[in-house]
Design a protein around this nucleic acid. Structure first.
Lengths: 352, 352
DNA sequence: GCCGGTTGCTAAATCGTGTTAGCGGCGGTT
DNA sequence: AACCGCCGCTAACACGATTTAGCAACCGGC
């Protein structure tokens, strides 16, 4: 059997003082409350010798703060990217001495409610409610009981909750600028969405915002999008099919793939047609999925900053918790996290 | 501000009974302790009407059990596979009404100790200590305070802790059998380890055990391993290099790659040499990494059962917690989880 | 000698629950 | 009438911390 934990009473007894005094000293308020040097010394030594560690469960009951937050997502397993998001959250939490509960809703409302309740029954200080791909979601009713932040998601209805999302529009601009800077002015085709602003798979924020950014910059430069192909899903096979079909009609100079998996498919189709990246066709993409560095040439892509998103969400959550503590209204804004460009080998000047 | 939570006292007041009675009824012990039907009815209705939910923090303080376990790993972000492991653990925990703390040590002893202490200060009922790839580890001293299980790891020194690991040896046997069943008897080469039993990268359990299984079955069948190449790390580029080098000397009939990333590299090298999978060369591998289904032809591989590992670890942990509760000794055994074969398109009968 | 102020500590209440010990009332027995 | 035993419920303590209110001792001033 494990030996009983050392309690504050044990420390107080050994130091020959009351529990109150021990508590004051150990919580660092001894100085301000005029505990003598010698007593303070005795208490600290006793705690040290006994290896005292405060029981957080008990502290939680008394103070109402558990130093624990919840991280609820629809699914963690779909991609390695989810892991990075959690990792960012984890590190930001650790820096504050806070632990993380995790839970998955798998998109089921019952699970979701059960999970949120289970966390609130454990009195979490706040909750990060995350989606694994950026989208709009209805805010669960159970989420109003504690401070909360939406991560990688925007509320469908106006909501008092703040949200943290990648800056997809700016990412779209960056992607377009990459091609312009390389000298491309024609033969630019889109794979996965476009060319029109409404040609996007339903329900994705990334689709419309990336497209908006791309059109924005190309439009400004007076460059026309040669074509675009909507893909219902953004998997390699769809990228392959769309690109293969494109190649029957045209000879593209540059491809903007709406994500890296599409780009993988596009690579395969280009390869099949005997076209080389980037000499014949430049390819630029989004996400910075691990495959982006596995394929040859390595893919130039605008990265989803999963790690930063996770960190930022926790930062915003703690700001929210402070607000809450001071009785202020929630923030309610949407925080955009920049998406960095990963310059690799898939973009070159257009062939003469 | 959030309205105050409903407490048991509120329920008792509304039902017009003492808190004790409310507690007895709500914990289901009312019947055995002779609380009258009518009182029971009143209490339950009051709880229902007020939306009472027990405060788990308080229950934890009183009962000493938090219905919470910790999941500590070296890193969650390295692979999507880690996510599956957590997912398995998560689901097994949820089925028991238990929440999961997660934490990452990043291999740093200080972080590791801090994390384990933070969890124990929160009085977790038990801890899963996971490694993201199978290996032997020294058991942290801080791990003895609560029931614990090693996941995907074996203790370097004899230890009272049980461990849960994939059955790599049997997986090696399965891989070898795949080739035998397809008719291969010669020209079988290893990529990543072998041919000798000691030709493995240091520190990996998977290496020696997979190799053992492979040699076991091939040896039984009287089939000789044509060659083997140790790779210091098991990334695509190493698989490429090893295979390319192999091809300068030999014309293999089948490749056993020690994991899927090596196999990706092998595919690229075979492709470069104008050899086709599986017509010219069969390829079999391990892990069932996502890329196994992305490359053409899809890779036949023996899967790491990450999800099952996670589940199993939590199962074993709860068995351990029960033992602990009853004052029994820890189990201390190692539990092997079977690795399933994923039959896909990379194995065929040897060309004539 | 009395009063006010400071110093240095402690008693006791509190958080929300679980649990043990016991209390009042009633019916039946001797 | 005294006693016993059972029924149905409650008072009170415990878990391990924080925090408020207050107490004893001492000092200085008038």
């Amino acid at each position: 059997m494990s030996p009983r934990r050392v309690t504050m009473t044990d420390v107080a007894d050994r130091a020959g003082v009351s529990r109150t005094t021990a508590s004051l000293v150990l919580s660092g308020r001894g100085r301000e409350l005029r505990i003598s040097r010698s007593v303070e010394e005795r208490v600290l030594r006793a705690a040290q010798e006994l290896g005292y560690r405060p029981d957080i469960v008990s502290q939680s009951l008394r103070t109402g703060t558990t130093r624990t937050i919840g991280f609820v997502s629809d699914t963690v397993a779909t991609s390695r990217l989810a892991g990075d998001m959690i990792k960012g959250a984890l590190e930001a939490a650790r820096e504050r001495g806070v632990m993380l509960f995790i839970g998955e809703t798998e998109g089921e409302p019952d699970l979701e409610r059960g999970l949120l309740e289970a966390m609130q029954d454990r009195r979490v200080d706040g909750i990060v409610f995350a989606s694994m791909f950026t989208r709009t979601i209805p805010v669960p009713a159970a989420l109003t009981a504690a401070p909360a932040v939406l991560l990688n998601a925007l509320p469908t209805e106006p909501s008092p909750l703040p949200s943290v999302v990648p800056d997809e529009t700016e990412a779209g601009r960056a992607a377009a600028r990459l091609l312009l800077d390389a000298g491309h002015r024609a033969g630019i085709h889109l794979v996965g969405a476009g060319p029109g602003i409404h040609d996007v798979p339903p329900g994705t924020v990334a689709g419309v915002e990336r497209l908006t950014g791309i059109r924005d910059v190309l439009g400004q430069a007076g460059v026309e999008i040669a074509s675009g192909r909507v893909c219902p899903d953004w998997q390699p096979e769809h990228g392959y099919a769309a690109t293969a079909e494109l190649l029957t009609a045209e000879r593209p100079r540059a491809l903007v793939c709406l994500n890296d998996r599409l780009a993988l498919g596009a690579y395969q189709a280009l390869d099949g047609a005997g076209l080389r990246v980037p000499d014949d066709v430049s390819v630029v993409s989004f996400d910075d999925h691990p495959i982006a560095t596995w394929i040859r040439p390595k893919l130039t892509t605008v990265a989803l900053p999963h790690y930063e998103l996770g960190r930022k969400a926790v930062d915003v959550l703690f700001a929210e918790i402070d607000r809450h503590r001071e009785g202020l209204e929630p923030d309610g804004g949407s925080h955009r996290v920049p998406m960095p460009v990963r310059l690799r080998g898939s973009v070159a000047a257009p062939a003469r």
